[in-house]
């Protein structure tokens, strides 16, 4: 793809206009979910779908830092808020497909599993299974978000006006 398309909450990724963009959007969606998934789920998926896969490490897995930025006033100039740990891995499958995995925290094994599944998602013979996994993870994340939103909504203040005596 030609230009990066950073996603923000109010500007969802624009409609893909080429097959390549659609592929990139699908891959990003998968990577986002794999980063937030429970690691056990990724282990179970690989054990079930691709038990004897040949995987070569290209980079990592390694743990390092990501400098997290904020914006002055919430929407102004960027500033460096502080760092967070992150782990990442890049792997190559026997057929040459490259996969990347990255997430917050120190779980290098998780990063490697995510990289393997990212690579599988690019292969026609695994794309459907990976899509199903991603959809299942997304459903769980959405349910967790809804739960959080509803628990928070229960603490919303309902103001009411007292009836004044003279009225």
């Amino acid at each position: 793809m030609d230009k990066p398309q950073p996603r923000t909450a109010f500007a969802p990724a624009k409609e893909p206009d080429t097959a390549q963009d659609a592929q990139a959007a699908r891959r990003k969606r998968a990577m986002d979910s794999l980063a937030r998934s429970d690691r056990g789920r990724l282990e179970a998926f690989l054990a079930r779908e691709a038990a004897d896969l040949e995987v070569h490490a290209v980079r990592g897995p390694e743990t390092g830092l990501v400098m997290v930025r904020g914006r002055i006033g919430g929407g102004g100039a960027p500033f460096n808020l502080g760092e967070a740990t992150m782990s990442r891995a890049t792997i190559r499958l026997a057929d040459g497909t490259i996969g990347h995995g990255q997430l917050l925290g120190s779980d290098r094994a998780h990063a490697r599993l995510a990289a393997i599944i990212d690579a599988l998602g690019q292969r026609a013979d695994y794309a459907a299974q990976v899509n199903a996994l991603v959809s299942a993870i997304e459903a769980d994340l959405t349910a967790a978000d809804e739960r959080l939103a509803e628990e928070t909504a229960a603490t919303r203040v309902d103001f009411f006006t007292m009836v004044r005596g003279e009225d």
Binding site: P4, Q5, P6, A24, R27, K28, M31, D32, M86, L104
Partner: peptide
């Protein structure tokens, strides 16, 4: 890859 991804 030319795009941004979420780390969580």
């Amino acid at each position: 890859l030319g795009f941004a991804v979420s780390l969580g």
